[in-house]
């Protein structure tokens, strides 16, 4: 038992090392005067300076945020409605509804990208920031719906009965009881949608048009053309700092905010592409579970 434990623990630490080394190398190299980062050629901030002078990157960042905000708002509304409908009614319609949202989670990004591209071409839509927004909203709806559904599953239906028993009309019951209690799930879904939208590359790559490059697409272009590589290091380091700060901030908010049910704290953090995949796996796991 001890031996098994020691060996598995050693594997685990090696894996963590494997996880962190590339990122650490990247961060260190953002301060490396050497262009290729193989060897340390002195400390410098010049890549950061260059980064801030690059207007195209700022433009891409603006695009990214515009799309992320729009897609988040749209998908929060659509996803919340979807979750409410799926949990409220049972039947063929809702089975299909759920199946659509679920299948969408499982499909690889590239399929969503290509099919949306073909769709936009077929209906004669010019590729632009707007098509990017449409695409992002589409994949975000599923995630928001699942986050809210998770919250709804733990929802005590007798609270709604209690509200109507105390004289609340269905409308009042929704706004005074159900909505406030679902809000953490909705916020979590929204944060998830926001981060996914900011991070998405593959789908955006297919449906963006001239002048509608988002940050990941811009970075991809820089990598592909092997230009300004140290600038990418600097940009990545900055983005990581922002993400970590956002995580810490949301953790602190979480600590202060009301949290009626502990189990609901599940989806309260802004999530990464990693978690998005986890989400997919969760669905797949469900499918496997029923198999």
């Amino acid at each position: 038992m001890k031996r098994l434990q020691r060996r598995s623990l050693a594997t685990f630490w090696s894996v963590l090392f494997f996880f962190y080394v590339p990122i650490l190398v990247l961060v260190v190299n953002s301060f490396n005067a050497s262009k290729f980062g193989g060897a340390w050629k002195g400390f410098t901030f010049k890549w950061y300076e260059k980064l801030f002078q690059d207007r195209a990157i700022w433009q891409a960042m603006e695009n990214t945020f515009a799309v992320a905000v729009g897609a988040t708002l749209a998908s929060v509304v659509l996803g919340t409605l979807a979750a409410l409908a799926i949990s409220r009614w049972k039947g063929r319609l809702q089975s299909a509804h759920y199946g659509l949202l679920y299948t969408h989670l499982v499909l690889p990004d590239i399929l969503m990208g290509i099919s949306l591209l073909l769709f936009f071409i077929s209906v004669g839509m010019e590729l632009s920031l707007f098509t990017v927004f449409l695409a992002h909203t589409t994949f975000c709806v599923s995630y928001v719906a699942m986050a809210v559904l998770g919250r709804l599953e733990n929802f005590d239906g007798s609270l709604l009965e209690a509200a109507s028993d105390l004289g609340a009309t269905p409308w009042q019951t929704f706004w005074k009881v159900q909505f406030p209690l679902l809000l953490p799930g909705i916020v979590a879904g929204g944060l998830l949608a926001f981060t996914l939208s900011i991070d998405d590359f593959v789908i955006t790559f297919f449906v963006n048009g001239a002048g509608s490059e988002t940050l990941p697409v811009k970075i991809y272009g820089m990598i592909k053309r092997s230009r300004d590589l140290p600038k990418i290091n600097a940009l990545s380091t900055l983005m990581m700092c922002v993400t970590v700060l956002a995580v810490v901030a949301s953790r602190m908010m979480q600590g202060r905010g009301m949290r009626p049910q502990k189990d609901a704290s599940a989806a309260r953090r802004p999530s990464s592409p990693a978690e998005r995949r986890e989400g997919q796996g969760g669905r797949v796991r469900g499918a496997a579970h029923h198999a």
């Binding site: 599940a266 969760g282 579970h289």
Partner: peptide, 11 residues
């Protein structure tokens, strides 16, 4: 199972 795992995976 489904939403449960998603929720769990998110945190």
């Amino acid at each position: 199972t489904d939403t449960d795992v998603v929720a769990a995976m998110n945190s």
